[in-house]
Design a protein around this nucleic acid. Structure first.
Lengths: 205, 205
DNA sequence: TCATAATCTTTACAGTGTCAAGATATTTTT
DNA sequence: AAAAATATCTTGACACTGTAAAGATTATGA
């Protein structure tokens, strides 16, 4: 051991450190000012070090997206677990969906701008869907519709339409320059309620 | 006139040339690979020339966004003019909204990622809204609801909810990795119909 | 132990946005 | 029309970016 100070070797941690520190940067400043060199510096490592763990910037971003999507999925699953299989479970799930992005405004454009995530809206068994939140939404939706007298032919469309609404609301709420005079957080419930009740009409009970 | 070849001076046209050529680049390659130097080169002009007309890259992008938003508004207005004030006008408007982005897939993230456009969802008279498409949607929505027995207190919410749906659908349809087994273009009408009919129930006639 | 592989650093290069200084063309003033 | 002022465009420079290549360091395993 010479006197020469040596940078910690970071052994097997750098990969995860890059992902976690990268997500922090997204949270703080958003996607636009995000750079490989910044994350590297934030991890106390030289600017080319990330290339030992990720093929390029896109691949690190993909890993970060997967990480966030995973956290998001857990939130949604906890929400479902929390409200049992009440008929208005979709309302709570939708609200949780929107609130998640309200609480992390930078996540929306981070996840869906130039995303590698595959979203398969076909309801076939072999659908290759890497965006779990939609799978969660779909599963709950189908389960509820199964117990309803909603016309079977339109159920897929209904679920996609409802998710479009929720996803669009999340998009609007997290846009930087969209203003609203009332508190969004209070309103979300109203929107969800109005939407679900009228969309599904008396078909759920 | 010396023999020396001289670059055309581009008199007052460069500003518009940059905007139009810039939009073409967005259409061809999207926002991610867009660069000031490329547009300049495409206009046959040196890399710093744009700074005579735009403060910086953001300002050029804003001008391009305004241009596209204007085109978009015209499409929507023509749609409304084409279907009179039939009760299902909202259906056609919504369809036109989604189709516009389907026809120009790069426009969605271009317009709404790091956008300078102000969207004011309050319905107050002095709302400062620079996104005309929403104003068009709002106006038609209010006009139709006025002739209905839809509860007055919920009309603002209804319009925002419906627009969230349309906007969300446009978002989904233009995402690179969202797949669907049927032809979106055929389905849009179904979605709009299902949504409008059930959302407004028997309140429109 | 020694060779091999994994990890990190350094150096290098092309592309980017932006600024400052200069050249050229146009417009305005005299 | 000549001169002065202004608008437009070019050139050169700088810092920052992603990425590649080559070398150094550390870990692994035979």
């Amino acid at each position: 051991m010479s006197k020469k100070k040596r940078q910690a070797y970071h052994h097997k941690d750098l990969k995860h450190a890059l992902i976690e520190r990268g997500i922090e940067l997204i949270n703080e400043e958003g996607l636009k000012t995000f750079s490989l060199r910044k994350v590297a510096a934030a991890c106390g490592v030289s600017h080319a070090a990330p290339y030992s763990h990720f093929q390029n910037k896109e691949h690190l971003l993909s890993a970060m997206q997967d990480y966030v999507t995973n956290e998001f999925s857990k939130v949604l699953e906890n929400t479902i677990a929390g409200c049992g299989n009440k008929p208005n479970a979709l309302e709570y799930l939708g609200k949780a969906y929107v609130i998640f992005f309200m609480d992390n405004p930078h996540y929306f454009s981070f996840l869906f701008t130039q995303s590698h995530v595959q979203i398969d809206l076909s309801f076939s068994a072999d659908s290759h869907n890497t965006y779990k939140p939609f799978e969660i939404y779909k599963e709950l939706g189908l389960a509820l519709l199964d117990k309803s007298n909603y016309p079977e032919a339109g159920r897929k469309d209904a679920i996609i339409a409802m998710w479009s609404f929720v996803h669009g609301l999340a998009s609007l709420v997290t846009m930087k320059n969209v203003h609203y005079d009332e508190d969004w957080r209070d309103k979300i419930t109203d929107f969800m309620k109005a939407f679900q009740c009228t969309f599904l009409g008396g078909n759920l009970n």
